[in-house]
């Protein structure tokens, strides 16, 4: 294990999780959530679970982002009364 690389990925995960929670723009939150999934996929691959990392990269970073995007299409920035 390369502990420096793991530390960088852990810091990236924490930072991207905070940004995804606090972002005002929902599209930006989706993109940062995909970054979070990709970082955790890296972490799984480093820890030896290559199959889990592959699934996380495909589903978490790919499919989930697209489905969130499709749901976001039906939202508006301002509420309509």
């Amino acid at each position: 294990m390369i502990w420096q690389l793991e530390l960088i990925i852990y810091l990236l995960l924490i930072a991207s999780a905070i940004v995804a929670l606090r972002a005002k723009d929902l599209l930006a939150a989706i993109v940062v959530l995909s970054v979070y999934s990709f970082g955790s996929a890296f972490l799984f691959a480093i820890l030896g679970a290559v199959d889990v990392g592959f699934t996380e990269a495909v589903v978490g970073a790919g499919i989930t982002g697209i489905l969130f995007l499709a749901a976001l299409y039906y939202t508006t920035r301002k509420s309509v009364d």
């Binding site: 199959d51 592959f54 699934t55 495909v58 589903v59 790919g62 499919i63 697209i66």
Partner: peptide, 13 residues
């Protein structure tokens, strides 16, 4: 590594 689920998810994506 890989298999039916990952390949199918890639095709769908």
């Amino acid at each position: 590594p890989g298999g039916g689920f990952q390949g199918g998810a890639l095709l769908g994506a």
